[in-house]
Write a protein that binds this DNA or RNA. Structure first.
Ligand SMILES: [Zn+2]
Ligand SMILES: [Zn+2]
Ligand SMILES: [Zn+2]
Ligand SMILES: [Zn+2]
Lengths: 143, 143
DNA sequence: ATGGACCCTGGAGTTACTACAGGGTCAAGA
DNA sequence: TCTTGACCCTGTAGTAACTCCAGGGTCCAT
């Protein structure tokens, strides 16, 4: 492969992306289809490296692919106002903060649950199972 | 529907589960197939209410369905030692703590990113886009 | 010329649901 | 009695973002 031209495997190594993922991004239009060699191998250049690196960075920040697409669009139109970019980042920040709060509540519940078990007993006496089981008697639920 | 017998919709309301989800749980063997009425409607009793409530509680704690299945198995065999239950809970606790740590790192990065944008500019000068873009020059990546 | 590392396409599998489409059932009101 | 609307049935396909596989081709070195 010529200088400045990368095979799909080389591009993957360079960007920390699996080969299948690169082909997937091409199929859904996140990455443009590259040139092909005589043997029908994909052949990537600098623009592809730049674009895929950008995509991976944004993905690693937890943005969905739809947002990646929006950011690529914005990055390609330098004259648009950049408030939209800011809004995307703030939206993701909120999302992440919401998820953290959810998981912290979950962690507290699991922690309480974990302390219920005095190990060594049988399932029949397990407080964890008990705590998870509904105390449901006849007539409690069904009118 | 007779006393003590619930339609799928009533069971859903009682347990906070969508009708489709209940049918899905039946298909994958999480819930046993209930009796049917003359008109071929599913007809649920107390055991179903108890079991589905248990499933939902475990799911709400973030356990995957595979673990739900394991817990149901354990709950059905009261003579097994309960260390296994404890292990499942501790495993999930670790998992949740790992996710929280990941998200906190993400939040910090997003927070830094959000402060880069002095709003009102054009995308061309946006520091967010710049921060996400690789500084990739010719010869930098390709041997 | 032959072996192994790499590449190709197309399709299926993953998780835990959710959303139809195209029908049947049931109870209540006019 | 008829009809209307809420509910139920099955079966299939769609979601997010990949990941894996089968069954083949290409390339390079020995
Ligand atoms: Zn226990
Ligand atoms: Zn009941
Ligand atoms: Zn900006
Ligand atoms: Zn390069």
């Amino acid at each position: 492969m010529a200088k400045q031209e990368l095979s799909i495997g080389a591009l993957g190594k360079l960007t920390g992306t699996k080969v299948e993922t690169i082909r997937f991004y091409e199929k859904i239009g996140i990455l443009p289809a590259p040139a092909r060699t005589a043997g029908n191998y994909r052949s990537y250049g600098h623009d592809h490296v730049r674009r895929l690196t950008f995509v991976r960075r944004v993905r690693d920040l937890g943005f969905p692919l739809e947002t990646v697409r929006a950011m690529l669009d914005l990055a390609d139109q330098p004259d648009r106002p950049c408030g939209e970019v800011d809004a995307l980042v703030l939206g993701q920040l909120n999302e992440v903060e919401r998820k953290i709060a959810d998981l912290e509540r979950l962690r507290d519940e699991l922690d309480r649950l974990a302390h219920q078990c005095r190990r060594g007993g049988r399932v029949a006496e397990c407080r964890i199972i008990e705590a998870l089981s509904p105390h449901h008697e006849d007539g409690h639920c069904c009118p």
